[in-house]
Each structure stands twice: as structure tokens, then as C-alpha cells.
């Protein structure tokens, strides 16, 4: 249940960005979450909905792209997806590999409106 910590970190960046672009509303947030990230997408969604209340992202939608695990083999150079959690090279069976994707928790992009819905003068 560390999804709330992740969402807290997300909101730090999100609010900074919204301020930097003078946004009046954040409409959509897109995340990339690796299958080996240890994150449960449903919990992330609940945490996001809880956290966004009363913020500029109150009505924002959340998209989560799930990223499969891929390994790069240092022996034969092949890059392969591994969906079975057997982390070795499927081409040459080498166990000298690095995980190149599937562990990430990345805030990919933020969509925002940069002018108020009813543009009021003054202020």
C-alpha cells in the first residue's frame, strides 16, 4: 500500500507543472507502470481519486499504461519480453541480463487547460 506515497510524489510534480504553465485545470494524467513495479493499478486509481479532491486536478482522468517486463541479454544482445517471470534470455538461455523495462513508475504526461472556462477579466 505505498500507492499513496507514489501519488503524493505525482502531485508534487503535477502542481509544479500546472503552476509553471498557468493552468486553470488539469484534465488528464498519464502514467506508465511496469508489471514488476510492485504497484497495483486499482490502488493507484483510488489513491489518485482521494488525493485530487480540492486540487486543480479535481476532475482529472487517470490513464495507466501497463508496461511488460523486458530483458536485454548481455551474452547475445537480444532484447525479449518475459511474461512468465522467468528472467533469462529466451534466445540463448543466458542469465547474464539486465531488466530494461517493466520496473518503472513514470509520470508520462499531463494535459491541462490554460485558460478559465468562463474567462473573467481582472485579477
Amino acid at each position: 500500500m505505498h500507492e499513496l506515497s507514489i501519488v503524493a510524489s505525482l502531485f508534487e510534480t503535477l502542481l509544479d507543472q500546472a503552476k509553471a504553465y498557468d493552468a486553470c485545470e488539469v484534465t488528464r494524467v498519464r502514467l506508465k507502470v511496469g508489471l514488476l513495479s510492485g504497484i497495483v493499478p486499482e490502488l493507484l486509481e483510488s489513491a489518485f481519486d482521494m488525493y485530487k479532491k480540492g486540487t486543480i486536478a479535481e476532475r482529472a482522468g487517470l490513464d495507466i499504461e501497463i508496461v511488460p517486463v523486458a530483458v536485454h541479454c548481455r551474452s547475445c544482445g537480444a532484447e525479449s519480453l518475459r511474461e512468465d517471470f522467468v528472467l533469462s534470455c529466451p534466445k540463448c538461455a543466458s542469465t547474464d541480463f539486465e531488466i530494461v523495462q517493466g520496473t518503472e513508475i513514470v509520470l508520462e504526461r499531463i494535459e491541462m487547460d490554460i485558460e478559465g472556462p468562463s474567462s473573467q477579466a481582472g485579477g
Partner: peptide, 16 residues
């Protein structure tokens, strides 16, 4: 009303 899309690509565990 103009919309803006910002590509952030920030590792949410990056600070830690």
C-alpha cells in the same frame, strides 16, 4: 479554451 499537453517522463521514485 486552449489545452496544453506537457510531456513529463518523470520517475515517481526518482527523488527517493
Amino acid at each position: 479554451m486552449p489545452a496544453k499537453e506537457v510531456i513529463v517522463l518523470q520517475d515517481l521514485l526518482g527523488t527517493n
